[in-house]
Design a protein around this nucleic acid. Structure first.
Length: 198
DNA sequence: CTTCAGATGCTCT
DNA sequence: GAGCATCTGAAGA
Protein backbone atom coordinates (compact mmCIF):
# COMPACT_ATOMS: atom_id res chain seq x y z
CA UNK A 1 0.00 0.00 0.00
CA UNK A 2 1.26 3.42 -0.87
CA UNK A 3 1.77 5.86 1.96
CA UNK A 4 0.19 9.31 1.97
CA UNK A 5 2.86 11.95 1.35
CA UNK A 6 3.45 15.19 3.21
CA UNK A 7 1.39 17.19 0.73
CA UNK A 8 -1.75 15.30 1.67
CA UNK A 9 -1.64 16.89 5.11
CA UNK A 10 -0.67 20.41 4.04
CA UNK A 11 -4.23 21.22 3.00
CA UNK A 12 -7.62 22.31 4.28
CA UNK A 13 -8.22 20.41 7.52
CA UNK A 14 -11.86 19.62 6.86
CA UNK A 15 -10.92 18.12 3.51
CA UNK A 16 -8.14 16.07 5.06
CA UNK A 17 -10.51 14.82 7.76
CA UNK A 18 -13.01 13.62 5.14
CA UNK A 19 -10.37 12.08 2.95
CA UNK A 20 -8.79 10.18 5.83
CA UNK A 21 -11.93 8.05 5.98
CA UNK A 22 -11.27 4.67 4.38
CA UNK A 23 -7.49 5.13 4.62
CA UNK A 24 -5.28 2.63 6.41
CA UNK A 25 -3.66 3.61 9.68
CA UNK A 26 -0.56 1.42 9.97
CA UNK A 27 1.33 0.97 13.23
CA UNK A 28 4.62 -0.92 13.38
CA UNK A 29 5.56 -1.96 16.91
CA UNK A 30 7.20 -4.94 18.62
CA UNK A 31 7.82 -6.57 15.26
CA UNK A 32 4.13 -6.44 14.39
CA UNK A 33 2.38 -4.57 11.64
CA UNK A 34 -1.06 -3.46 12.79
CA UNK A 35 -3.52 -1.82 10.41
CA UNK A 36 -6.92 -0.21 10.85
CA UNK A 37 -9.29 1.28 8.34
CA UNK A 38 -10.13 4.79 9.57
CA UNK A 39 -13.89 5.14 10.09
CA UNK A 40 -14.33 8.32 12.10
CA UNK A 41 -12.45 11.62 12.14
CA UNK A 42 -12.91 15.09 13.53
CA UNK A 43 -11.42 18.40 12.39
CA UNK A 44 -9.94 20.95 14.81
CA UNK A 45 -9.39 24.04 12.80
CA UNK A 46 -6.95 26.23 14.66
CA UNK A 47 -6.72 29.49 16.55
CA UNK A 48 -10.31 30.57 15.84
CA UNK A 49 -11.81 27.23 16.90
CA UNK A 50 -12.80 27.30 20.60
CA UNK A 51 -12.58 23.51 20.71
CA UNK A 52 -9.03 23.40 19.39
CA UNK A 53 -6.16 23.16 21.86
CA UNK A 54 -4.50 25.96 19.89
CA UNK A 55 -7.47 28.32 20.34
CA UNK A 56 -6.36 31.96 20.51
CA UNK A 57 -2.86 30.89 19.66
CA UNK A 58 -2.28 28.92 22.82
CA UNK A 59 1.24 27.49 22.50
CA UNK A 60 2.48 25.16 25.24
CA UNK A 61 4.66 22.08 25.44
CA UNK A 62 1.55 19.98 24.82
CA UNK A 63 0.34 21.83 21.73
CA UNK A 64 3.74 22.50 20.19
CA UNK A 65 3.55 19.75 17.55
CA UNK A 66 0.41 21.30 16.09
CA UNK A 67 2.40 24.43 15.27
CA UNK A 68 4.78 22.48 13.08
CA UNK A 69 4.05 21.34 9.53
CA UNK A 70 1.32 18.81 8.74
CA UNK A 71 1.94 15.09 8.59
CA UNK A 72 3.08 14.56 12.16
CA UNK A 73 1.27 12.85 15.05
CA UNK A 74 -0.18 15.00 17.82
CA UNK A 75 -0.82 12.61 20.71
CA UNK A 76 -1.98 13.88 24.08
CA UNK A 77 -3.31 12.53 27.36
CA UNK A 78 -6.77 13.26 28.82
CA UNK A 79 -9.04 12.20 31.65
CA UNK A 80 -6.10 10.80 33.56
CA UNK A 81 -6.05 7.62 31.52
CA UNK A 82 -6.61 7.99 27.78
CA UNK A 83 -4.50 9.02 24.83
CA UNK A 84 -5.81 10.69 21.67
CA UNK A 85 -4.24 10.47 18.22
CA UNK A 86 -4.37 13.38 15.79
CA UNK A 87 -2.81 13.99 12.40
CA UNK A 88 -1.43 17.53 12.22
CA UNK A 89 -2.53 19.43 9.12
CA UNK A 90 -1.61 22.67 7.35
CA UNK A 91 1.69 24.44 7.03
CA UNK A 92 4.06 25.33 9.85
CA UNK A 93 2.64 28.06 12.08
CA UNK A 94 -0.99 27.14 11.35
CA UNK A 95 -1.98 24.83 14.21
CA UNK A 96 -4.74 22.51 13.03
CA UNK A 97 -5.29 18.76 13.30
CA UNK A 98 -7.59 15.82 12.64
CA UNK A 99 -8.57 13.59 15.56
CA UNK A 100 -8.70 9.91 14.59
CA UNK A 101 -11.73 8.70 16.53
CA UNK A 102 -12.31 5.15 15.30
CA UNK A 103 -11.18 2.39 12.97
CA UNK A 104 -11.74 -1.21 11.96
CA UNK A 105 -8.97 -3.79 12.46
CA UNK A 106 -7.71 -5.06 9.11
CA UNK A 107 -4.33 -6.54 9.91
CA UNK A 108 -2.69 -7.83 13.09
CA UNK A 109 -6.00 -8.21 14.89
CA UNK A 110 -4.49 -11.05 16.91
CA UNK A 111 -1.69 -8.83 18.19
CA UNK A 112 -4.18 -6.04 18.91
CA UNK A 113 -6.41 -8.42 20.80
CA UNK A 114 -3.54 -9.77 22.87
CA UNK A 115 -2.32 -6.27 23.70
CA UNK A 116 -5.73 -5.10 24.88
CA UNK A 117 -7.34 -8.17 26.39
CA UNK A 118 -4.64 -10.81 26.67
CA UNK A 119 -6.72 -13.10 24.49
CA UNK A 120 -6.44 -14.17 20.84
CA UNK A 121 -8.86 -12.63 18.36
CA UNK A 122 -10.59 -15.96 17.70
CA UNK A 123 -11.97 -16.21 21.21
CA UNK A 124 -13.02 -12.56 21.58
CA UNK A 125 -16.77 -12.03 21.81
CA UNK A 126 -18.19 -9.59 19.24
CA UNK A 127 -18.56 -6.79 21.80
CA UNK A 128 -14.86 -6.93 22.64
CA UNK A 129 -13.87 -7.15 19.00
CA UNK A 130 -15.70 -3.91 18.40
CA UNK A 131 -14.17 -2.38 21.52
CA UNK A 132 -10.67 -2.70 20.10
CA UNK A 133 -10.82 0.54 18.16
CA UNK A 134 -14.29 2.10 18.09
CA UNK A 135 -13.24 5.11 20.15
CA UNK A 136 -10.21 7.42 20.21
CA UNK A 137 -8.85 6.20 23.54
CA UNK A 138 -9.41 2.56 22.70
CA UNK A 139 -7.74 2.97 19.33
CA UNK A 140 -4.59 4.36 20.95
CA UNK A 141 -4.53 1.65 23.60
CA UNK A 142 -4.88 -1.04 20.93
CA UNK A 143 -2.12 0.41 18.76
CA UNK A 144 0.20 1.08 21.70
CA UNK A 145 0.23 4.85 21.26
CA UNK A 146 1.16 7.13 24.16
CA UNK A 147 2.82 10.50 24.56
CA UNK A 148 6.10 8.76 23.75
CA UNK A 149 4.85 8.65 20.17
CA UNK A 150 3.88 12.32 20.14
CA UNK A 151 5.54 14.06 17.20
CA UNK A 152 6.10 10.91 15.11
CA UNK A 153 6.42 11.60 11.41
CA UNK A 154 3.41 10.12 9.64
CA UNK A 155 5.56 9.77 6.54
CA UNK A 156 8.08 7.68 8.50
CA UNK A 157 7.64 4.01 9.42
CA UNK A 158 6.44 3.51 13.03
CA UNK A 159 3.09 5.16 12.35
CA UNK A 160 1.90 5.93 8.84
CA UNK A 161 -1.30 6.31 6.84
CA UNK A 162 -1.72 4.58 3.49
CA UNK A 163 -4.24 4.50 0.69
CA UNK A 164 -6.88 1.83 1.26
CA UNK A 165 -8.51 -0.54 -1.15
CA UNK A 166 -10.94 1.21 -3.44
CA UNK A 167 -14.35 0.44 -2.02
CA UNK A 168 -17.35 2.77 -2.09
CA UNK A 169 -18.79 4.31 1.06
CA UNK A 170 -20.82 7.30 2.15
CA UNK A 171 -19.68 10.05 4.50
CA UNK A 172 -21.92 11.18 7.35
CA UNK A 173 -21.27 14.57 8.88
CA UNK A 174 -22.23 15.62 12.40
CA UNK A 175 -21.31 17.66 15.48
CA UNK A 176 -18.07 17.06 17.31
CA UNK A 177 -18.07 14.83 20.37
CA UNK A 178 -17.18 15.53 23.98
CA UNK A 179 -16.40 19.23 23.72
CA UNK A 180 -19.43 20.91 25.29
CA UNK A 181 -17.07 23.44 26.84
CA UNK A 182 -16.62 24.88 23.34
CA UNK A 183 -20.21 26.13 23.21
CA UNK A 184 -21.58 26.74 19.75
CA UNK A 185 -18.41 25.39 18.12
CA UNK A 186 -19.28 21.91 19.40
CA UNK A 187 -22.11 21.92 16.89
CA UNK A 188 -19.99 22.79 13.89
CA UNK A 189 -20.30 19.91 11.38
CA UNK A 190 -16.70 18.75 11.65
CA UNK A 191 -17.20 15.11 12.65
CA UNK A 192 -17.05 12.64 9.78
CA UNK A 193 -18.02 9.00 9.73
CA UNK A 194 -17.56 6.34 7.10
CA UNK A 195 -20.78 4.46 6.37
CA UNK A 196 -20.83 1.50 4.03
CA UNK A 197 -24.08 0.47 2.45
CA UNK A 198 -25.31 -3.11 2.38
C1' DC B 1 -31.11 -0.96 24.13
C1' DT B 2 -30.13 3.40 27.64
C1' DT B 3 -28.20 6.16 31.43
C1' DC B 4 -24.79 7.01 34.99
C1' DA B 5 -20.93 7.34 38.17
C1' DG B 6 -16.30 6.66 39.05
C1' DA B 7 -11.73 6.16 37.64
C1' DT B 8 -7.33 8.91 37.26
C1' DG B 9 -3.36 12.19 36.41
C1' DC B 10 -1.70 15.72 33.44
C1' DT B 11 -2.13 20.58 31.96
C1' DC B 12 -2.84 25.23 32.53
C1' DT B 13 -4.34 29.19 35.55
C1' DG C 1 -7.38 23.57 42.12
C1' DA C 2 -10.44 22.81 38.14
C1' DG C 3 -11.32 20.60 34.17
C1' DC C 4 -10.64 17.47 30.57
C1' DA C 5 -11.36 15.92 22.20
C1' DT C 6 -13.01 9.00 27.41
C1' DC C 7 -14.05 4.22 28.92
C1' DT C 8 -16.14 0.67 31.63
C1' DG C 9 -19.31 -1.96 34.14
C1' DA C 10 -23.57 -2.06 36.47
C1' DA C 11 -28.34 -1.34 36.65
C1' DG C 12 -32.84 -0.37 34.64
C1' DA C 13 -36.37 -0.52 30.97
Amino acid sequence: MEMLGRDFYLRDTEMVAKELLGKLLVRRVDGWELALEITETEAYIGTDDPACHAYRGRLTDRTRVMYGPGGFAYIYFVYGMHHMLNAVTREEGNPQAVLIRAGLPLEGSDAMSLRRFGLPWEVLPPAKRRALSNGPGKLCATLGLTRKQNGLDLTGSELVICHGKPSPFAVETGPRIGIDYAGEAAGWPLNFRLVRKN
